[in-house]
Design a binder for these strands. Sequence first.
DNA 1: CCCTGATTCGC
DNA 2: GCGAATCAGG
Length: 170
Amino acid sequence: MIDAATGWTDDRVELLTKLWGEGLSASQIAAALGGGVTRNAVIGKVHRLGLSGRAKPGQNAAMRPAKARPVVPTPPQLEGGRTPPRDPEQLMRPTVVADDRWPVEEVEIPVSQRVSIMELRDTTCRWPLGDPSKPDFAFCGGRAVTGLPYCAHHCRIAYQPAAERRRLRA
DNA sequence: CCCTGATTCGC
DNA sequence: GCGAATCAGG
């Protein structure tokens, strides 16, 4: 194990810096980082890094009053209306984790809370589940992190730390 | 009540 | 260095 959850590893700091620079709020970044990191931890780190004092509070794309279309950061797959793989099994398991040995907690998504596209609210996690071409297609339906399209769990998957092969070499 | 970042201060 | 608690605010 590579002390991931403990302390700020290079890639976590990297992601923090990147997302902060993109204007995401501390809580949003905390959700993306996962590992029990709180927004306070993020803010504290931001200050220690001297990243504080961002441009303008509220000018962030992800925080703006969602008008026309909500900003969808990094859908691992299924972007656009494109229908990627035909294999339902693959769709059910967005293995974005790929080569990373990132400790993404395996949390089962309660099928019971899944919602259809009609039931999506702005605070509903839009993580796609299932085959879009089939009737059983639905979305995660969890409580999305404010300003982001996904719940905390799916944020961790959507916002993976920059692939750093540097350490992977080990 | 939801959220925001800023600061303090014991660890 | 870290982050919970707290503060000040929207």
